[in-house]
Design a protein around this nucleic acid. Structure first.
Length: 759
DNA sequence: TAGGGAATATTTTTT
DNA sequence: ATATTCCCTA
C-alpha cells in the first residue's frame, strides 16, 4: 500500500476508461498475432500458455504484464512474476520498462529463489531463523554434509557427501521436509540413514542461521501452511501471477505458486512441455501436463506460429519430437520461405568433425555471415575441446558459454567468506573457510579444539575462539595466530562505521594477507585471480552495503558474458535453451552421447524422451540452417570407442534432410583393416542411413562388413587424401602403389595407397 | 603443515 | 587423457 511508485495513480486511463481501450486496442496489442493477443488479454482466471520454440513467448509475457498495469487492474506491487534465471528476470524487467516507458521498482519480479528469499527474510523467525540468515551455495552445503557424515561416523568415501546433497536437494524439490521423507527413501545410502542425516542437516542449518537454495522455497511452504495469516497476506497482495518456463518448475515451486494464487486465481503460466530438459534436477513435466486439472476452468492458449526458423528446420524438429508420448501437442508453423535442408553428415572421428565444422564456418564467414550468429551445441562439455583445438589452429575466434561462474571461483568465495565473517560474526562456515587462509599456522589441532569447545557450549566458532585464546589449551604459536586473527576481525567490524563498504572490503583483503597470498603465488593462474578480486571490489561499488552485496552474490549474481568481438559460440544444449542463432551446428549425434548413456541408465524411457527434447531444443535454436553430424569413432576418456549414429538421426523425416557423407569413406577404413564403424554394430539398434538412396553409403547397419571399395581410386599427384593415422594430406608423388604424401599435420610420409582414401 | 603422488571420477545446471 | 581430490609421509 505504500509503494513509492503507484502506476494506477499516474495512469491517465483508470479502469473506467476500459471500453474505449477495447474499441481501439493499444499499439502494443496490435503488434501481436491472434493467440498472442488472447494470451495477453485473458487476464482473469488461470491461463496456461503453451508457447513453442520461437513463438514470441517473452513478448507475450511482458506485454501481458504491461497490459495488466496499463489497464489499472493492478499496481506494480500487486503483481508477482517469476522466472528461473536472473537473465530471464532482467530481460523481462527491461522489456517491461521499455513498454511502460519508465522504470518500475515495486514489481515482485525475479527468480523463484529471490522472491522466496524476499518473503522468507520477513518471516524468518517462524521457521527458527533470523532475518539475516545466510544463504548457502552448493559448496557450503557439501562441506556441511561432510561434517555431518563424519560426526555420524559414516565413511565419506563410500557414501559421498555430494550424493547426499543431491538426494536432499531432490527431496526439497518435492517439498519434503525431513519428517515427510519415507524412512527407506534414501535407499541403501549409509545403510538407510539418509533421512536421519537429512534431519541432522536441517538441524545444523538452523543452528547456523543458514538456509540452502531448496530451503528458500521449502521454508516459505512451511510458513504458508502453518501460519494462515501470513499466507493470506500474500494471497491478497498478489492479484496477478506470471510464471515463465513453467515446464521447469519442480513440485515445491508448484505448491508455492498454487498457494499464492489461491485467492485471486489469476495465474498465468507460460511454458513448453517439448522444452522440458531439467527433469534430472527436479523439474516436473507433470506440472504442465496437469495444469488444467490442477486449476479448474483454466484456459489453454497455444502459440504455434514460429517467427524464428525455416520450414525445413521446423519440419525436422516436429518429426523428431513426434516420437515422444505424453505431449500436450503443438504444431509449429511459419510463413517463412523454404530455406536450406538440415544437413546431416557422417564423419570419421571427433577431430574430423571439428575440421568439417571449421570449414563450414569459414565458408559461412566468406559469405558474409557473422560469427556471433553461429553456435555449436554439444551434449557434454568434453566435446568442446575438439572444437577449441581446431579453431585455435584455424585462428577462428570463439567463446565458450557457461562453465564456472564468477562467484564460483575460489578467490571470490574466499573473499566473500571474509565479508560474511565481518558482517556476521557467527557464520561458522565462513570462519572455517578463512581462519587459516592465508596460512596462519592453524591446523587440525586448533580446529579440533575450537569445534570441541563450540559444540560443548553451543556457541559459534568465533566465540569459541575468543574463549580459547584466554586459556593455555593451544600451543603458544597457534594461540598467538588465532588471537591475531580475532583482533583483525574485531578491527574490521569496528571500522564498518567509518569506512565505506568498498574501502572496508579492500582493507579486509589487504590486512588479512589474502591479496598478498595470491601475489606471492607463482601459479600461472594467480594473476588472473588477483584480477578477479579487483573485479569483485569493482562490483561492490554498485551496492549500498556488504549485506546487500552478499545477498546479490548468493541469489542474483549474473553470469557476466562480455559481448565482445565477433566470435563463434560454443555451449551445451542445455545452455542454449532460450537462445537463437542463424546457424546451428549439432555435433555428436551418436548413440550413448546424444541419448546419453547415463541418462538412459538412470531414467529409462522418461530420460530418453528428455534427451529427445534436448535434441529438439538444439534444432529449434536455428533461424536459417542446421548442420548435424555423427562420428564413427570417438575418444572417450582416453579410449577410442566406435559409435553408432543416434537413433534421433533416424527419426528425422528424410524430406527435410540433406545427407553429405563422403562416399567410400568408411570403405577406406575397412580396406585398411580397421574395424568398420558399422561392422561393430552387431547387437546394437539397426540404423537406416537416409543417405542410402542418394549417396551409396551403407544401407543397413547390420554386422556384415562393409564391402571394400577396392582401389577404384587411382591417386595422382595433387590429390587430397585421408590417412587413418596421419590425417589429411596431399599426394606429392606416385610410385606404383606407393605414394608420397605431405600431410597437413604429420609432415611428408611414404605410404601404401590402400591405407589412404580420397578426401 | 605442506607437498607430492595415488586414487578417482568424469551429463546436463540454476539458485 | 585429465583434472581434481585425498591421503600420507617428510
Amino acid at each position: 500500500m505504500t509503494d513509492p511508485f503507484d502506476l494506477a495513480h499516474h495512469e491517465p486511463e483508470p479502469v473506467a476508461a476500459e471500453p474505449a481501450i477495447a474499441a481501439a486496442p493499444p499499439p502494443y496489442l496490435a503488434a501481436l498475432n491472434e493467440p498472442q493477443q488472447q494470451a495477453v488479454e485473458a487476464t482473469e482466471g488461470p491461463v496456461l500458455v503453451l508457447a513453442g520454440a520461437g513463438t514470441g513467448k517473452t513478448r507475450v509475457l511482458t506485454t501481458r504484464l504491461a497490459h495488466i498495469l496499463f489497464s489499472g487492474r493492478a499496481r506494480p506491487g500487486e503483481v508477482l512474476a517469476v522466472t528461473f534465471t536472473n537473465k530471464a528476470a532482467n530481460e523481462m524487467k527491461s522489456r517491461i520498462e521499455s513498454l511502460l516507458g519508465r522504470p518500475v521498482e515495486s514489481l515482485w519480479l525475479g527468480t523463484f529463489h529471490a522472491m522466496a528469499a524476499r518473503i522468507l527474510r520477513r518471516h524468518a523467525e517462524l521457521v527458527g531463523l533470523e532475518s539475516n540468515f545466510t544463504i548457502l551455495d552448493t559448496d557450503d552445503q557439501v562441506r556441511l554434509l561432510k561434517q555431518i557424515l563424519s560426526a555420524a561416523d559414516i565413511d565419506e568415501k563410500q557414501w559421498p557427501a555430494r550424493n547426499l546433497a543431491i538426494m536432499i536437494g531432490r527431496w526439497k524439490d518435492r517439498g519434503l521436509r525431513p519428517d515427510k521423507v519415507d524412512a527407506d527413501a534414501g535407499g541403501d545410502f549409509a545403510l538407510g540413514q539418509a533421512p536421519a542425516l537429512y534431519a541432522a542437516y536441517q538441524q545444523r542449518l538452523t543452528t547456523l542461521n543458514a538456509a540452502d537454495f531448496g530451503d528458500l522455497l521449502l521454508h516459505c511452504l512451511t510458513i504458508f501452511t502453518r501460519h494462515a495469516e501470513v499466507l493470506a497476506e500474500y494471497q491478497g497482495r498478489f492479484r496477478y501471477l506470471l510464471v515463465d518456463e513453467y515446464q521447469d518448475a519442480n513440485v515445491a515451486q508448484y505448491l508455492w505458486l498454487r498457494l499464492l494464487a489461491q485467492q485471486h486465481r489469476n495465474l498465468c503460466c507460460v511454458g513448453d512441455d517439448d522444452q522440458s530438459i531439467y527433469g534430472w534436477r527436479g523439474a516436473e513435466v507433470g506440472n504442465i501436463l496437469r495444469f488444467e486439472r490442477d486449476f479448474p476452468g483454466a484456459q489453454v492458449i497455444r502459440l504455434e506460429q514460429n517467427y524464428r526458423s525455416t520450414p525445413h528446420i521446423l519440419g525436422a524438429a516436429a518429426g523428431l519430437i513426434a516420437h515422444n508420448s505424453g505431449r500436450l501437442g503443438k504444431t509449429l508453423w511459419t510463413d517463412a520461405t523454404e530455406g536450406e535442408k538440415v544437413v546431416v553428415r557422417s564423419v570419421w572421428d571427433g577431430e574430423d568433425e571439428a575440421r568439417v565444422v571449421g570449414e563450414e564456418i569459414e565458408a559461412l564467414q566468406r559469405d558474409g555471415g557473422s560469427l556471433d550468429e553461429i553456435a555449436i551445441l554439444v551434449r557434454a562439455a568434453f566435446q568442446m575441446r575438439e572444437f577449441e583445438d581446431r579453431f585455435l589452429t584455424l585462428g577462428l575466434p570463439y567463446r565458450v558459454i557457461g562453465g564456472l561462474r564468477f562467484y564460483e571461483r575460489r578467490e571470490i568465495r574466499d573473499a566473500n567468506a571474509y565479508f560474511r565473517l565481518v558482517v556476521q560474526a557467527h557464520d561458522d562456515l565462513a570462519f572455517e573457510r578463512v581462519v587459516n587462509l592465508p596460512k596462519r599456522g592453524l591446523g587440525d589441532a586448533t580446529m579440533q579444539a575450537l569445534h570441541g569447545l563450540a559444540r560443548a557450549r553451543e556457541i559459534s566458532l568465533d566465540q569459541a575462539a575468543r574463549e580459547l585464546v584466554t586459556t593455555d589449551e593451544l600451543r603458544p604459536q597457534a594461540r598467538r595466530a588465532l588471537a591475531g586473527f580475532l583482533e583483525s576481525l574485531q578491527r574490521w567490524r569496528q571500522r564498518r562505521g567509518d569506512l565505506s563498504h568498498v574501502e572496508l572490503a579492500e582493507l579486509v583483503l589487504d590486512e588479512s594477507g589474502y591479496t598478498a597470498m595470491w601475489q606471492h603465488d607463482k601459479a600461472p593462474d594467480a594473476p588472473g585471480r588477483l584480477e578477479n578480486l579487483k573485479e569483485l571490489i569493482h562490483a561492490l561499488e554498485e551496492f549500498e552495503s556488504l549485506e546487500s552485496f552478499l545477498e546479490h552474490v548468493s541469489l542474483v549474481m549474473e553470469n557476466e558474458q562480455a559481448s565482445d568481438s565477433d566470435k563463434v559460440n560454443i555451449m551445451t544444449l542445455h545452455a542454449a535453451k532460450g537462445l537463437e542463432f542463424d546457424s546451428i551446428f549439432l555435433p555428436g549425434w551418436e548413440e550413448e552421447l546424444l541419448p546419453h548413456q547415463r541418462a538412459l541408465d538412470e531414467g529409462g524411457t522418461t530420460a530418453l524422451e528428455e534427451e529427445r527434447r534436448l535434441a529438439h531444443v538444439g534444432l529449434t535454436r536455428a533461424r536459417q540452417r542446421v548442420h548435424l553430424s555423427f562420428a564413427a569413432n570417438r575418444r572417450v576418456y582416453g579410449h577410442w570407442r566406435a559409435g553408432l549414429p543416434s537413433r534421433f538421426v533416424e527419426e528425422l523425416p528424410g524430406e527435410h534432410l540433406e545427407m553429405r557423407s563422403e562416399t567410400g569413406f568408411y570403405a577406406g577404413r575397412a580396406a585398411a583393416g580397421e574395424e568398420s564403424f558399422f561392422a561393430s554394430s552387431a547387437g546394437r539398434p539397426s540404423f537406416h542411413d537416409p543417405a542410402a538412396t542418394s549417396g551409396g553409403l551403407i544401407v543397413e547397419g547390420r554386422a556384415e562388413r562393409v564391402p571394400v571399395r577396392q582401389a577404384t581410386a587411382d591417386f595422382a599427384a595433387g590429390d587430397r587424401v585421408f590417412h587413418q593415422k596421419f590425417g589429411y594430406g596431399r599426394v606429392m608423388q606416385v610410385d606404383g602403389n606407393r605414394l608420397e604424401v605431405t600431410f597437413d599435420k604429420a609432415g611428408t610420409k611414404k605410404v601404401v595407397d590402400s591405407f589412404v582414401s580420397p578426401a
